[in-house]
């Protein structure tokens, strides 16, 4: 349940978005949450499930990078 980390939206196309997971890209669904390019989001089961604060997202990605 809720096993996810932040990703950054890099492009949008209809109800899909391309997100960046620390250098790896993935196409995901935006039907649940409307987003804009540059937003940080949480992705689960192919859906963006939540928008998150940029500062917090960058902090957690830094923690994960250093672990």
């Amino acid at each position: 349940m809720c096993l996810t980390i932040p990703a950054k939206v890099i492009s949008l196309e209809k109800d899909k978005a391309m997100v960046d997971f620390s250098g790896k890209e993935q196409k995901v669904d935006t039907q649940l949450v409307k987003v804009r390019v540059g937003d940080y989001v949480m992705v689960s089961n192919g859906f963006i499930i939540k928008k998150v604060n940029k500062k917090e997202a960058e902090e957690i990605l830094k923690i994960l990078k250093n672990l």
Partner: peptide, 16 residues
């Protein structure tokens, strides 16, 4: 259902 309702909540993003 829990994944679906995430959109309505306030995030606590540090997964740990």
């Amino acid at each position: 259902f829990s994944i679906f309702i995430n959109q309505f909540g306030v995030s606590v993003i540090n997964p740990y």
